[in-house]
Amino acid sequence: MLGLVVPGGVVFCSVWLHDWLLPDYARPILVDGGGSGAPAFGEIGVFLIDQIFRGALADVPEVFRLGLTPISNNPENAVISWMIVIYRIAAGAVTAAAGYMIYRVWRGMPNIDRWIRFYEDRLQRAEAGEFTGEQS
């Protein structure tokens, strides 16, 4: 959650509060491909979710022109565009790390029963007085 929520909050606040954060910056932050004017609060949220999926899915949605919203970043606005690039990299890294952890748990599951039986046996032997702690 920290890999997506906190950086996502930074991007969201930067886009939503761009007038305060970047005063007198003439270039628009986002461009609406649908032509409905400046994006609203909810549209910025959907834009951010779209960026999560694009980063997490290794830009597959970008290649096949799949998206949740017609809103995109304005490439002429370098500050926000680079923040989005970094956010996509973070989303991809978090997804890869989560996938790796799922793989590790999946690979370790068969060994769990064996270790539980091993330690139950050691506990029973220790309670019976057979285990002195020097055996391996």
Rank of each mutant, 00 (worst) to 15 (best):
T69W: 11
G42M: 04
E127L: 15
A56E: 01
E120W: 02
N73T: 12
F41T: 00
G133V: 00
R117V: 06
G45H: 00
F12C: 09
P75Y: 11
G9A: 08
N111H: 13
N73H: 14
W20H: 11
L123G: 10
Q135A: 12
G129C: 06
Q51W: 00
L57I: 11
I84A: 08
D113G: 14
D121A: 15
L66K: 14
P7V: 03
F118P: 00
V60P: 09
A126G: 12
R27H: 00
I49C: 12
D121N: 13
Y103N: 08
L21G: 06
Y119H: 14
E76C: 05
I89V: 15
N111Y: 13
T95N: 12
P75S: 03
L30M: 07
T69N: 03
Y25K: 12
V10C: 04
P70V: 02
H18V: 07
I112W: 08
F41N: 12
G34M: 09
G37Y: 10
R117C: 08
P75W: 01
I116W: 11
A97T: 10
N74V: 06
L123S: 15
G99N: 13
E62K: 15
E62D: 15
D24L: 07
R104V: 12
D50V: 03
V94I: 06
A126I: 05
P39Y: 08
